[in-house]
Amino acid sequence: MNIFRLAGDMSHLVAILILLLKIWRSRSCAGISGKSQVLFALVFTTRYLDLFTSFISAYNTVMKVVFLALSYATVYLIYMRFRNSYDSENDTFRVEFLLVPVIGLSFLENYSFTPMEILWTFSIFLESVAIMPQLFMITKTGEAESITNHYLFFLGLYRALYIVNWVWRYHTEGFFDQIAVVSGVVQTIFYCDFFYLYVTRVLRGRGKMSLP
């Protein structure tokens, strides 16, 4: 554990909480892609199966359980509790275009050809593209509420901090997780355009922003 990794995990947690509290307080999930949230729940489910097989640390176990619970709570709020506000007409990204290549790749490129490792790899690859339905939705509707932008900012910050963490771990421990690093870098690139718009528009007080 290093400070970058911890800060990355905390950014991730803050992002998830921002989204959950936004939906809860406004009693609405307008502008939120339910598809992205289902994909993130799937990411956590397939990655954290090792909760049953290996103990790493109390921190690790607690965070996994918290991420799982929060992601399922978010999906519940969108599709059950506040489903009347769910904007399904604009949440039209074809998820199978992500799932098919990701499933295929996780069978081809993994650390060992076992169900647990293939599912772990699947979760890493899926996480790198899971935000695409949300970004697609923003592009389609032309704008996002500032709170949605804060959510995306902390999600992107989490990814950026994880890269710093990997550089740190490579130099201090010789640790290098090729699958996580390559897909992590790809994932972070998706946020670059968004980061630029966030800094130039949202932080300069316009509140809302639209993607070109």
Binding site: T53, N60, Y162, N165
Partner: peptide, 10 residues
């Protein structure tokens, strides 16, 4: 190298 049974990151 890394052990495949030890994914310690979240």
């Amino acid at each position: 190298g890394m052990r495949v049974d030890d994914h310690d990151e979240l």
